[in-house]
């Protein structure tokens, strides 16, 4: 069983991945002349995601689409839902941008009625704060339906804040993209809150996975690849070589997601 909780599809007008912002910020000198933007060619298409799912024998891929993140969430969520109806290996993830105000809470109702089980949020790209009331109101509405929430792990302190704000709602909260610089916080937060989980896509070291399993429990980790932006094999190898019990590994690779995000198994 292989469940990948971190995938997406769509298109990206900037041809610029988020990591590029950090690379630009870390520049130590600027050359004279026009600034050359950092671009990366990523094939974000649904066809490419389906190809990866097929090649890597992924049973279920939890996915959102970039239209919902970058443009408009109602039509974006509709597109995600339609893709999942056509391709049963996709589990649709909905998204809402709290900045919009109009139609946010209504979209929670519509998505819940349709059968979405998970919502993913993008405070960095959409430029809003996780402790802002509009976002918290949306999360309260999600909690009424018992729907799971995914958020970026972010910088140091963000996961602690997320957990303080959202874990009391009682729904699963999943931090996405915890890196080697903040995984110590992921471990502490996951150990402290029963309903706080992490994806493995950016953890980077096996020791972190093993340390996480030891301190917070391997059941709090869920495999994510960040496909199609990242090489699937990098994230997969990381879990594959980790020295955890076989049962824990199969949990990370899929059973934890099925259990705690209350997903139906592959058809």
């Amino acid at each position: 069983m292989l469940v990948d909780i971190n995938t997406c599809f769509g298109t990206s007008p900037k041809q610029r991945v988020r990591y590029a912002e950090g690379v630009t910020a870390a520049r130590m000198f600027d050359e004279p002349g026009p600034v050359v933007p950092t671009t990366q060619e990523v094939d974000w298409s649904l066809d490419n995601l389906l190809r990866i799912i097929d090649e890597q024998h992924i049973d279920l891929a939890l996915t959102y689409n970039l239209r919902g993140k970058l443009y408009e969430f109602v039509t974006g969520n509709h597109e995600t839902w339609r893709a999942a109806q056509t391709h049963p290996q996709l589990v649709p993830i909905a998204t809402i941008d709290p900045c919009r105000h109009f139609d946010c809470l209504e979209e929670v109702d519509r998505c819940a009625d349709r059968g979405f089980r998970i919502f993913r949020f993008f405070p960095d790209e959409q430029e809003w704060a996780i402790d802002s009331l509009p976002f918290l109101h949306i999360c309260e509405a999600l909690a009424e339906y018992g729907l799971a929430i995914m958020l970026p792990a972010g910088g140091w302190g963000q996961q602690s804040r997320i957990a303080e704000l959202l874990c009391p709602l009682g729904v699963p909260v999943v931090a996405i993209g915890s890196t080697f610089t903040v995984v110590a916080e992921s471990i502490a937060v996951a150990a402290a809150y029963d309903n706080f989980f992490c994806d493995t896509s950016a953890i980077h070291t096996v020791a972190s996975i093993e340390g996480f399993a030891q301190a917070a429990g391997a059941h709090k980790l869920m495999f994510g690849s960040n496909s199609p932006e990242s090489y699937f094999e990098s994230a997969h190898n990381l879990v594959d070589v980790a020295q955890v019990r076989d049962q824990e590994k199969s949990g990370i690779f899929g059973e934890n997601a099925l259990c705690y995000l209350r997903l139906e198994g592959p058809q």
Binding site: F180, E233, A235, N237, L238
Partner: peptide, 11 residues
């Protein structure tokens, strides 16, 4: 061992 070699091998 700042990053995991299996992670880079995956690329």
């Amino acid at each position: 061992d700042l990053l995991e070699p299996a992670f880079t091998r995956g690329m």
